[in-house]
Design a protein around this nucleic acid. Structure first.
Length: 215
DNA sequence: AGTGAGATGGCCT
DNA sequence: GGCCATCTCACTA
């Protein structure tokens, strides 16, 4: 690696091989609710330490709207060690530990001044087949934010990574667009403490998809 | 099918 | 000390 490479910011680095199907960082700087909706159908990918690439089609997301959203970790502009990655530019990962044992993966949206994010709640794995013939809901490996991270092998070590480039090992590729008629819009899961915001319609999932966490 | 409790650790909303 | 953007298992029916 030469000195020119060292002087470049991660934003300038987008290898040519990435451009075709990669979702660019500019996409994540947009409106968070729109990003959550539009990520349905996109393909989440992780290159594990052994070099294996695990992929899954995003089938369920939630939008978290930053300092004015009582359900969001950055509500009231709380900048802590835990929420540090939320204050990165759109397109970075934000991974946190919940209930002492599960990790949850978000994609940060907007800018450094607007710490918003989209929680990735469920994927339909593309390189997986059900052990016993037809898949049954209770045995699925990635139908929920904690299970999604476990399936992909994601931990706090993958917090703060740029997700618009394959070089990070964690990225999102464009997928087949999901028709509006196939999108269910409802309230977010597990945020009853957030008062009125608990009812905001910020959860999106693909209607009828087996891998949605709570249809 | 639906309910309830326990696991388990980092951070106080 | 109490609370979580969760998951699994045991228990009822």
């Amino acid at each position: 690696m030469g000195t020119r490479d060292l002087q470049r910011s991660p934003h300038d680095v987008q290898p040519a091989a990435d451009r075709a199907s990669m979702i660019p960082c500019s996409f994540y700087r947009g409106d968070t609710t729109t990003v959550a909706r539009k990520l349905l159908g996109a393909v989440l990918c992780h290159r594990t330490e052994s070099g294996k690439i695990l992929r899954g089609r995003i089938v369920e997301t939630e939008a978290y709207l930053g300092i004015e959203d009582p359900a969001c970790h950055t509500f009231g502009d709380r900048r802590t060690a835990k929420t540090r990655s939320m204050y990165l530019d759109g397109g970075h990962s934000y991974i946190y530990l919940i209930y002492g044992m599960h990790y949850c993966l978000n994609v940060v949206t907007r800018s450094e001044r607007e710490p918003e994010a989209v929680l990735l709640r469920a994927i339909e794995p593309l390189d997986w087949k059900s052990p016993g013939g037809k898949p049954t809901r209770t045995l699925l490996p990635s139908n929920g934010p904690g299970k999604l991270c476990r399936y992909l092998g994601l931990t706090k070590a993958h917090d703060g990574l740029p997700m618009w480039t394959k070089s990070s090992g964690l990225w999102i590729q464009e997928g087949e667009a999901v028709d509006d008629g196939l999108v269910v819009e409802t309230s977010r899961v597990g945020v009853a403490y957030a008062g009125e915001a608990a009812g905001w319609p910020l959860r999106f999932y693909i209607k009828g998809n087996l891998f949605v966490s709570k249809p």
